[in-house]
Write a protein that binds this DNA or RNA. Structure first.
Lengths: 240, 240
DNA sequence: GAGCATTTGTCCGTATGTATT
DNA sequence: CAATACATACGGACAAATGCT
């Protein structure tokens, strides 16, 4: 058996203790860990950084280190393209905060995907999403203007965009196309995620259509923190 | 504008220099960086670790730090379930090394997915995959026995399993189901990937069927190093 | 708002261990 | 075996963000 470094041993002990604690619980400070295991603060720090790398904790400068939990976020054609529902299915509590609602002109790929003329206007909704109170995602969502002229009032009354589209527009959104990748966020995205712009994050690009008519109803780009969600993409063929 | 830490500044300078260099090129050692920027080795080390976090370099103890490149590995129902072809489409050079070929009894989910009776035998092929000479993945692949009794000889003659199935079995494999996630590898997998078992890696589970008959022809679990591939999953609905 | 203690972030210098060449 | 390079570790210091008084 390979000999382990001291900080890795400490990390394993802490990881086992963390496993029994609820999300959000406070983890010992670096000073306390150093004193408890009789090591320097550098070694204690390395152990906590190890836990951060395993996505077991989140650290906040000046505040402390806290137990983290990821939820399984499953993307599939069989499932509704709804963040609120997907999170609830995984046992989490979703919440969204509107950052901005405005009208923008659709260009290029975005216009094509929504099947709107180049330069036509659409709603742009920018939101942060939280899971169990922790910041998880930052999303831009485009919706054709004629589908719902008064989006602003609606999104403040009902958090789930899927519900709004179903109840106010009479459509049944289904995920028609989706692309998931994992790369560095732009500085703007990093701000929205309160994340370092040098750490990779999930990018989920998605197009929803009305399940009955096939009409495009929503296009979105969602960036998601890897420490909040374990993204799972299920791709289904014509069989099964 | 936020003030940057010294190591982040150094990392940015090095990142810009690395961008012009070919994959595999040697990066200055920590000592050289410390001397060049007049900082301690700890700060130089932090800068190089930053680059490692951005997946721009790979570090080998005792050997040095080297420029890394990722390729886009695109998973989609429209594309053949072939590692060799997917890598070549992204501009890389694929290679596979057989670690083990043996017969195993199919159990549970695996048997169900291949539509074989519980406990029936199948080939198990264990391979490492390399991209441009760098270790990229470690895979277990299960193939029904009756499809190709002499798998052992075939995989040593032809590297691409997709080609073998097409040419020797007369099937046209298509990706019928696939699940992609990102989590910590088991110790066994970490060994196969020559990776730390405390760093998350990709897990791609896949089922291939014959495009003509719909018969299951291959089931696989592939673990892939995030520093070798940028996994992209495309999900297509009935419209498009 | 100001002040203070706590906590993580960064950095210095030094030393030793371990893997590769 | 020797030189090189990364890995771990010690102890100390100050900066920056947070939370409370």
């Amino acid at each position: 058996m390979a000999k382990k470094s001291r900080y890795a041993e400490i990390a394993d002990v802490l990881a086992a203790e963390i496993a029994d604690q609820p999300a959000g619980a406070r983890v010992s400070s670096e000073h306390e860990i150093a004193a408890r295991f009789a090591v320097s603060r550098a070694a204690a720090r390395a152990a906590v950084q190890e836990l951060e790398g395993r996505l077991l904790v989140r650290r906040v400068r000046g505040a402390g280190t806290f137990v983290n939990r990821r939820i399984d976020y499953v993307l599939s054609q069989r499932k509704a393209p709804s963040m609120h529902q997907t999170v609830r299915e995984a046992g989490g509590t979703p919440r969204t905060v509107v950052c901005d609602v405005r009208r923008v002109a659709l260009r290029g790929e975005l216009a094509a995907r929504l099947e709107q003329p180049e330069g036509s206007e659409a709603h742009l909704l920018v939101r942060q999403s939280y899971i169990d109170g922790l910041l998880s995602g930052w999303a831009q969502e485009w919706i054709p203007l004629d589908l719902l002229p008064e989006l602003d009032a609606a999104v403040h009354a009902v958090e789930s965009l899927d519900s709004i589209l179903r109840q106010m527009c009479g459509v049944s959104p289904v995920r028609a196309w989706c692309r998931v990748s994992y790369s560095l966020p732009t500085p703007e995205v990093a701000v929205g995620l309160e994340s370092d712009h040098t750490r990779p994050v999930w990018l989920i690009e998605s197009l929803s259509r009305d399940g009955d008519t096939g009409r495009p109803v929503m296009c979105s780009s969602t960036w998601s923190r890897p420490d909040s969600t374990r993204i799972i993409v299920e791709l289904d063929g014509p069989w099964k």
